[in-house]
């Protein structure tokens, strides 16, 4: 630490640093996080160790029974598999598209502001309405099939086909998500110093070279944020699935949160739902830890 004028005061409170100030700055947020997120989670963990499946009898200690039952349940294991497959496809896809659109709408073209607002708009309408719109779009006699027929392509099953249902869900989720993440990347692009581009251009760098040499490295922080946040939000997605397919056909779209949601709210199986929640949170934690490690290694 550099020694500057107020260094005496700093030395005096070296051990506690700016603790007093920090506390006042942090208190509301920490209180909110602890009381409104962590405490109910602790209650959920407690429930998962104590409650009976039926919730009828007085609760008693069941240890890890809920967890072992869950991890033996083929439906839950299938949902893990589907969630993994979904994540592997949807995350790179959304980030790549969001980045491409961010770069495009950051260009100084006429109407760019209106364009990006339109792309963002799907996130502003209730998910139940998005689901209704897409249920209609994917109907066997719906506009998508009508369009395909005009092109001479046979009608597709979309949500009713085991091979296309997950892809259809990815379309819906991305339609909502891409514009949202694009906004964060546009904010990042605005921060990039234009003289960097000028310098690169003077060096004779083309569009692609400038994108790789200037845009990507300068956008690192925003990209890292979008990577982490998008992965987590896709892990927790369930409303479109719940409304459009209920997890079918044949469990092909049964994302993990849909499974947990159904246990909690449809079957009222509080114990299994709590155990499922804990599993989801642990997966999220693992993902974030791995991402943090990779990102910090990348910055060296």
């Amino acid at each position: 630490m550099t020694t500057t004028a107020p260094s005496r005061r700093r030395q005096h409170s070296r051990r506690f640093g700016d603790l007093g100030v920090a506390l006042t700055f942090l208190l509301p947020a920490v209180l909110a996080a602890v009381l409104l997120r962590l405490w109910p989670t602790v209650r959920a963990v407690w429930d998962s160790l104590r409650s009976t499946a039926l919730g009828v009898e007085p609760t008693h200690w069941v240890g890890f029974d809920q967890y072992s039952a869950l991890l033996r349940d083929p439906a839950f294991l299938n949902s893990l598999k589907i969630t993994l497959l979904f994540g592997i496809i949807v995350n790179p896809l959304q980030i790549a598209v969001a980045l491409a659109l961010a770069v495009l709408f950051n260009e100084r073209i006429r109407g760019a502001g209106l364009m990006r607002t339109l792309v963002f708009l799907p996130v502003a309408i209730p998910q139940s309405v998005s689901a209704v719109i897409w249920a209609v779009a994917f109907r066997p006699d719906g506009p998508l099939n009508g369009f395909l027929t005009r092109l001479g392509i046979a009608p597709q099953g979309f949500l009713t086909s085991p091979d296309q249902a997950l892809a259809s869900i990815i379309v819906v989720v991305s339609w909502i998500g891409v514009g949202y993440w694009m906004m964060f990347l546009i904010a990042g692009l605005k921060e990039i110093d234009p003289t960097l581009y000028e310098a690169a251009a003077l060096d004779g760098a083309g569009r692609w070279a400038r994108f790789r040499g200037v845009t990507l490295p300068q956008l690192r922080r925003q990209l890292a944020f979008v990577l982490v946040a998008d992965t987590i939000s896709n892990l927790l997605v369930f409303a479109p699935v719940q409304i459009l397919t209920g997890g079918g056909p044949n469990g092909r779209t049964n994302l993990i949160m849909n499974d947990v949601f159904e246990r909690a709210y449809v079957r009222a199986d509080a114990g299994a739902a709590a155990a499922g929640t804990v599993v989801v949170a642990l997966i999220a934690l693992a993902i974030v830890l791995v991402q943090f490690r990779l990102l910090s290694r990348g910055s060296d």
Partner: peptide, 16 residues
């Protein structure tokens, strides 16, 4: 703590 708080699925802890 702040990071963990956004990893927890809110709908799943809504009941407690």
């Amino acid at each position: 703590v702040m990071v963990i708080s956004f990893l927890i699925p809110f709908d799943a802890i809504a009941i407690p």
